[in-house]
Write a protein that binds this DNA or RNA. Structure first.
Lengths: 282, 282
DNA sequence: CATGGGCGATACCCTGAAGGTATCGCCGCA
DNA sequence: TGCGGCGATACCTTCAGGGTATCGCCCATG
């Protein structure tokens, strides 16, 4: 199976529409139709049910969509990592570290500092990403290491080391009635009618339904919180980044959050190994 | 990058010889040379150093070999799993379970029995493989689940559950002087001049150097042991498969062996989930 | 020291796979 | 009943990928 065929199939499976998929791929619709039915013939499997008004995935099609995405990610990763390895030879060596905007900046600062002191340390490019985005960067080789948050981020298929486990706090605008409390139950904050939880875009770029405001970045969230439009629940260490108009109250029964450093298995990179070692010494 | 290009590069990187690689790929040498240099141009990286008498991998080439193999495995897995998913629809559903020839047959029997009792259980194809081979089967989608042995098998990138942890025993032919002992130290058996440890073929199909006999299968090993040509060190539970001319002696300080059940992350298969659940209930 | 042979690169040709355009056939809907 | 949306089919065109012949380099060997 060629990656081109996989890309074609994934496009159709995502759009569930040959015309739009073809447009997205920058080709005409007929060759796309042909490529898909040829793929189906070679696999001996019906991947899509076309019933003249709509296209739907079969069971086998769903499997290929899943596995195909993973395979395309792996191919892309091979490409990226090779390019970066070639750069390393010319003395342009660097590691890309992906981290969530909300992650503990204190921990990150200490990590970068500790790593910089290593012999043979190279330039670390820090990429701040939205939630769930680090996983994608790691899988496609656009990042070499990532800071992730268990149990929120998917760790499957990565090597990881735990760095820090902490409780969570709720963030209120100063003056909110609950800021007088010294601790809260999770149940007290999840269903506040005046402060709904914000909604993040899913992997498909759309927002789940709900009352909360839509947000794409951490700074947006902080601003929304200051304005009293939403309630944040974040790891304890995020308190240090708050300014005066925001107040944090610990939530005693919220699940603990573990900050981990993650990297693709079989990483051959010296720099990644050094970074992880530095992280473990913190 | 197309999988064809990756296959071409991997072939050359493994053979380190354009002519042989071309032969292996079933094409002529010139188009292969062209394909590789085109790939190098597109990646902007030198992958191979050709110094007129020999071909060697560059640093970037080594990375692409590594990552490329993983990517090709992922593509192959997508293909296999889609085919099997399509079969499942026609009522031909089955799971492929890969296990090492030496693994506890008792545990396996119990597992298969427990799973068969599940509602919705499907046919389980058991594949016996040589050491290290299960990993490959799982990665390429030719198997859905595997029984592996930590710390001997590579578990990276798989989801796993531990099933059984046990010590190891040395296997001697009946009448060997050490069979009078009730326990042994690891150091007492690793360097016996009369009974060298056997040699397994590596992933490249060649045997490491050493005094021990070469072996490809578990039954070969048992026979070699009966003949007094080699010494076996195996998990405790393997004793049950021995016949009378072999004697097992526990090794007190050998590393413990954990039998685990492993499956590819993000497995969407109902049967795999049921199998794992059945295994955990044992 | 000449030379033959092994190996990768280059030159050049040819075929077929992949892409484009036009159009059909089917179906839901106004 | 006819129009429009959508996937499939028919047919043409192009160029990427594969083949053969040959070069150029270098080591081995007599």
């Amino acid at each position: 199976m060629e990656t081109r065929e996989l890309r074609y199939f994934v496009a159709v499976a995502e759009e569930l529409h040959f015309g739009r998929a073809a447009q997205r791929l920058g080709i005409a619709q007929p060759p796309l139709s042909r490529a898909i039915s040829q793929l189906e013939r070679r696999l001996g499997a019906t991947l899509l049910k076309r019933d003249s008004r709509s296209v739907t995935l079969t069971e086998a099609g769903a499997v290929l969509l899943h596995e195909g995405r993973a395979a395309l990610d792996a191919v892309e990763a091979a490409e990226h990592r090779t390019r970066r390895a070639a750069l390393a030879v010319t003395g342009q060596a660097s590691v890309v570290l992906a981290t969530k905007a909300g992650a503990s900046s204190e921990l990150l600062a200490k990590l970068l500092h500790a790593y910089a002191a290593e012999p043979g340390a190279v330039n670390v490019e820090v990429v701040l990403c939205g939630p769930g985005e680090q996983e994608r960067l790691l899988r496609t080789g656009r990042a070499d290491v990532a800071i992730l948050h268990h149990p929120f981020d998917v760790l499957t298929g990565f090597d990881t080391e735990e760095l820090l486990t902490e409780g969570q706090v709720a963030i209120f605008p100063a003056g909110h009635p609950l800021t007088t409390r010294t601790s809260l139950q999770l149940s007290e904050v999840t269903e506040l009618p005046d402060l709904p939880l914000p909604r993040w875009p899913g992997n498909d770029g759309t927002y789940p339904d709900g009352p909360g405001p839509e947000a794409q970045s951490h700074s947006q969230l902080l601003q929304l919180t200051s304005l009293g439009r939403t309630l944040l629940v974040v790891p304890d260490s995020a308190r240090s980044q708050l300014n005066d108009d925001l107040v944090a109250v610990p939530i005693v029964d919220a699940p603990e959050v573990t900050t981990v450093i993650a990297w693709p298995p079989h990483s051959r990179s010296r720099a990644v190994a050094d970074l992880v070692r530095a992280a473990l010494r913190l």
